[in-house]
Design a protein around this nucleic acid. Structure first.
Length: 577
RNA sequence: GCCCCGGUAGCUCAGUGGAUAGAGCGGCCGCCUCCUAAGCGGCAGGUCGCCGGUUCGAUUCCGGCCCGGGGCACCA
C-alpha cells in the first residue's frame, strides 16, 4: 500500500514537472507512517525536502501537490500540517481491496514477484564436535527465518550447512571418543583438559564399544605420553599423531563414528526446531575432490600467494585485510581458510548470484580475507554478504552461564527447546535483531513462558478460529467472504485493523531487503494487538447478518495474515489454545 | 592499540533526518450473566551514554570521548 502511494506521488510530481509547474531534479517522495493517528494513515515530508530545489516555500509546494492529488481513488483526503507535511487519509475502498486480496490469495498472500538470480544462504555450520547450544540456536532461528522471508520476497533460495569434518577439532573429538571408548572397557585415565569433556562424548565412546567391540583397544600409555617440552596444543597434536599411528586404518572408524554421531544429533535437533536444509556440504569432500588444491592453484595464478617461513600466504592486505593469511602451513597442511576459499569459489561456480553467510560475531575479523580471496579469484566480492549474529549471553539464576563446548559446560538447544518449547524459543530469538546483543535469561524464559509474546500472537489466531467454531455451533452458515459488504466496517478498531493488514506486504519487502526477520515479529505483535482490541470492543456473531458477514471477512483476513506471518518465523498458528 | 556490535522507561528491547520517542514485562486503577481474561481500557515512569559539528529541524547523520560485549592464530 505504501508502494502504491509512493508511485502515485511520484507520478504526480512527474506530471507537474512535465507541465512545467515544477522544475526537474526533485528528490523522490518518501512515504512514511506517522506516529500519531491524527496525522493520517501515511505522510510525506516531500514538500519540506523538495522546497529548496523547487524554489517554493514548503507550504506552497504542499498546496500544489495536494491540488494535483485530490480526486485520486486511493485517497480519501489530504491535509497539510505543520511546516508542510502532507498527511494522507486512505480511502476505505483501498483497505477493502486489501482484505479481499488476502481472502483471495490465502497462504500465498504476501508473496512478492520472483526476482532474477539465485541466493545461497549458509547458516549454523557449527563444528560437529558437540551438540548445538543456545548460541547456535540463535543463528538457526535467524537463518531459517531469513531464508523463509527471502523466499517469500521472491528470491530463489537454497539453504546449506557447511560441515567442518576435516580439521583438527575433529581429530580432537576422535581422540576424546577413543579415550571414552577405552573407559567403557574399564581403563583408568586422567582425561586431558584440552579434550572434549562433555558427557555426550562418553555416550559416543560407549556406543563405539558396543558397535566395534574390543577391536580398537590400544594401551593408553602408548598414546597419552607426557612431554614437558610441549605446550598443551602441541601435546594434543602429538597424542593425535600417536593414536593415528596406533590405530592405522581403524582411526577412520573412530573419527567417522564420532562425526556421524554428532552430525546425526545436529540434524535431528535442527529438524525438530523446524529448520530445514537443502544440502549438508562436507569440507572433507571439498578436500578429497581436489577442490581446495584447484582453488589454491587459481589463487597462485593470480600472483597473490607467496612463501614465507616455509608457509604459503595469501596477500590479504591487498584487499583491505589487516595482515596476510596463511593458506598452507609449514607442515604442508592447508588451513581452514584454504578450504573456505574453495568453498566460496565453488558456491559461485554452482551459479549462485547472491551468497549469504550467517556467522557468529566472533568471526567478524574473518570477513575481509574471504572477500579478498573472492576478489583475487576474479569474483565480485559484493556477491557475498556476511551477516553477523551477536552472542546470546545466557543468564541462569542471575548469573552468567558458561558456554564452552570443550568443557561440556553449556546449555544445549535441545534443553532449551524442551524447556520453553519450539515456538517460544524461535519467537524469542527472532525478536531481537541479529546485531543486538541478547540477554537470554533462562529462568525467565522458563518460568514466565506464558508471558512470552509468542502466545499473544498465537492467541489472536486461535481466538479467530474460535469465533468460527462458535459460528457453526450456533448453526449459522459460513458466509462467502467474497460477497461481504465491507462498507459496513466503520468502527475505529476496524479501520486500524485494516490499515495494519495493509502494511503486511510493505513489512515483508522491507524486512527482506534489510535481512531483518525481527520486523515480522514486531509486526505480528502489533497485528495481534489490533485484533485483541477489536475483539474486546465489538461483537462478531450477535449482530445483523450483513454486518456479521463483513466482520467475519475482516477477521478471516486477519487470521490469514497472522498465519502467514507466523509461518515466516517457523512458528505454528494453533487453532485452539 | 586496532576492528566489529551495543548504550533509548525500573528490566528486556523496538524505532525515526521531522510534528507530543514506543512495546512487552514489572508497578498502580478499572473491565468477564455475553464469541477463550493467554485478553482489553487507563495511570505513573525518559537529559534517547557524554561533548561538539552539519541542518530550517538531530535521539537518528558526522567527529571525539566514556561504559559494556566480542575479535585481532601456521584454531575452526
Amino acid at each position: 500500500m505504501k508502494h502504491a502511494l509512493a508511485a502515485l506521488f511520484q507520478d504526480t510530481v512527474t506530471t507537474l514537472v512535465a507541465q512545467g509547474r515544477l522544475p526537474a531534479g526533485l528528490p523522490a517522495p518518501e512515504i512514511a507512517r506517522p506516529r500519531q493517528d491524527g496525522h493520517g494513515d501515511f505522510a510525506t515530508n516531500f514538500a519540506l525536502a523538495a522546497a529548496k530545489a523547487a524554489g517554493r516555500t514548503p507550504r506552497a509546494l504542499a498546496e500544489e501537490l495536494k491540488g494535483a492529488l485530490d480526486g485520486s481513488p486511493l485517497i480519501e483526503r489530504i491535509e497539510i500540517a505543520g511546516p508542510g507535511f502532507l498527511n494522507v487519509f486512505v480511502a476505505s475502498s483501498a483497505f477493502h481491496e486489501v482484505v479481499r486480496a488476502i481472502l483471495r490469495e490465502k497462504e500465498a498472500y504476501g508473496r512478492l514477484a520472483s526476482r532474477p538470480g539465485k541466493t545461497l544462504i549458509e547458516f549454523v555450520s557449527a563444528n560437529p564436535n558437540g551438540p548445538l547450544h543456545v548460541g547456535h540456536g540463535r543463528g538457526a532461528a535467524y537463518g531459517d527465518s531469513l531464508a523463509r522471508l527471502l523466499a517469500c520476497a521472491g528470491h530463489a533460495v537454497e539453504r546449506e550447512y557447511y560441515v567442518n569434518d576435516a580439521g583438527r577439532q575433529m581429530d580432537i573429538l576422535a581422540l576424546s571418543v577413543w579415550l571414552r571408548y577405552m573407559e567403557a572397557f574399564g581403563a583408568k585415565i586422567v582425561f586431558p583438559e584440552t579434550g572434549y569433556r562433555g558427557a555426550y562424548v562418553a555416550d559416543i565412546g560407549r556406543a563405539l564399544a558396543g558397535a566395534e567391540g574390543d577391536a580398537l583397544q590400544r594401551p593408553i600409555a602408548d598414546i597419552l605420553i607426557a612431554n614437558p617440552d610441549l605446550d598443551a596444543d602441541a601435546l594434543m597434536d602429538a597424542w593425535i599423531a600417536r593414536l593415528k599411528e596406533a590405530l592405522g586404518a581403524q582411526y577412520r572408524v573412530v573419527h567417522g563414528f564420532g562425526l556421524d554421531a554428532m552430525l546425526a544429533d545436529i540434524k535431528d535437533d535442527l529438524a525438530a526446531f523446524g529448520v530445514r536444509y537443502d544440502r549438508w556440504y562436507s569440507e572433507r569432500g571439498l578436500v578429497e575432490s581436489g577442490a581446495v588444491d584447484r582453488a589454491l592453484a587459481r589463487l597462485r595464478a593470480s600472483g597473490e600467494v607467496y612463501e614465507k617461513d616455509g608457509a604459503q600466504w595469501f596477500r590479504a592486505t591487498h584487499y583491505g585485510d589487516e595482515k596476510d593469511r596463511v593458506v598452507v602451513r609449514e607442515n604442508g597442511v592447508a588451513t581452514y581458510f584454504a578450504s573456505d576459499i574453495a568453498y566460496h569459489l565453488e558456491k559461485c561456480e554452482r551459479g549462485f548470484s547472491d551468497l549469504i553467510d550467517i556467522w557468529g560475531a566472533d568471526h567478524h575479523g574473518y570477513v575481509p580475507r574471504v572477500k579478498g580471496a573472492l576478489a583475487a579469484l576474479g569474483e565480485n566480492p559484493d556477491r557475498l554478504q556476511v551477516l553477523l549474529v551477536q552472542f546470546a549471553i545466557l543468564y541462569r539464576g542471575g548469573e552468567r552461564a558458561q558456554m564452552s563446548t570443550r568443557s561440556g559446560d553449556f546449555v544445549t538447544l535441545r534443553e532449551l527447546r524442551a524447556e520453553v518449547g519450539n515456538d517460544a524459543a524461535r519467537f524469542f530469538y527472532v525478536l531481537r535483531k541479529s546485531e543486538q546483543h541478547m540477554d537470554f535469561d533462562l529462568d525467565l524464559a522458563k518460568s514466565q513462558s506464558n508471558d512470552n509474546p509468542v502466545y499473544y500472537v498465537q492467541y489472536a489466531h486461535a481466538r479467530i478460529c474460535s469465533v468460527f467454531r462458535q459460528l457453526s455451533e450456533r448453526g449459522l452458515p459460513l458466509p462467502d467472504h467474497a460477497q461481504a459488504d465491507l462498507i459496513m466496517l466503520d468502527t475505529p478498531q476496524e479501520r486500524v485493523l485494516q490499515r495494519t493488514l495493509g502494511r503486511f506486504v510493505d513489512v515483508i519487502e522491507e524486512a527482506a531487503a534489510a535481512r531483518e526477520p525481527h520486523q515480522i515479529a514486531y509486526y505480528l505483535r502489533e497485528l495481534a494487538g489490533d485484533l485483541h482490541a477489536y475483539y474486546n470492543a465489538q461483537a462478531f456473531l450477535t449482530v445483523d447478518p450483513p454486518l456479521r458477514d463483513a466482520r467475519l471477512a475482516l477477521i478471516a483476513a486477519a487470521r490469514q495474515v497472522l498465519a502467514n506471518g507466523l509461518g515466516l518465523l517457523g512458528v505454528s498458528a494453533p487453532e485452539a489454545m
